[in-house]
């Protein structure tokens, strides 16, 4: 399928695909080798190839936020990211969040303050907030709101999401 054009062959670039290629990905601190086409999104690789189904596919278009994961610590929509472009990067998903000694404070606060109903948006919400708290352990209410402005919750659990995140922020403020 790959056509060779002399001027391109001369370039020091590597074309991959369109068939399956081996992708090396680092997810939640572990190395994986996945055989996938270049058109596979990070979301599909996580869900289908790695069985990490915490990130959800809702719109597949950057319209909802349920697929939010962190790449090098930054929240992105994994449905609009090609997996092939994530090689060599640090990928964090909700599955990697739980602490060895239990739950992340955000996870605890989400349970305690009932920050979800159906829970389908929850992994995405928590990942967006995790990135915020990593940068700023004591965010204000407005900073919290802005951090999840790209995560829809159709059940409308927003007030409780805010409450949960504020509780974590306040706990940090107290030390």
């Amino acid at each position: 399928m790959s056509r060779s054009i002399p001027s391109v062959r001369a370039l020091a670039v590597r074309k991959r695909g369109p068939g399956k290629v081996t992708l090396r990905l680092q997810v939640n601190g572990e190395e994986y080798a996945v055989l996938a086409e270049p058109r596979r999104t990070l979301l599909d690789v996580l869900r289908k190839d790695l069985g990490l189904t915490g990130a959800k596919k809702v719109c597949d278009r950057g319209h909802c936020g349920a697929c939010t994961v962190l790449v090098d610590g930054i929240p992105i929509y994994s449905c609009l990211k090609l997996a092939i472009e994530c090689e060599g990067k640090r990928i964090e998903t909700i599955e990697g969040l739980s602490f060895p000694d239990g739950l992340h404070p955000l996870q605890k606060a989400f349970i305690e303050h009932d920050a979800f109903q159906c829970g389908f948006c929850t992994p995405g919400q928590i990942m967006s907030l995790k990135a915020l708290f990593d940068r700023n352990p004591h965010p204000s209410a407005d900073e919290i709101r802005s951090a999840v402005a790209g995560n829809l919750c159709r059940c409308g659990a927003y007030a409780k999401i805010l409450r949960a995140a504020q509780a974590v922020s306040e706990a940090h403020a107290k030390g």
Partner: peptide, 13 residues
């Protein structure tokens, strides 16, 4: 709640 916040809850999807 624990399943939901850890991403381990299995939805049909």
């Amino acid at each position: 709640g624990v399943e939901v916040v850890t991403g381990k809850a299995t939805y049909t999807a």
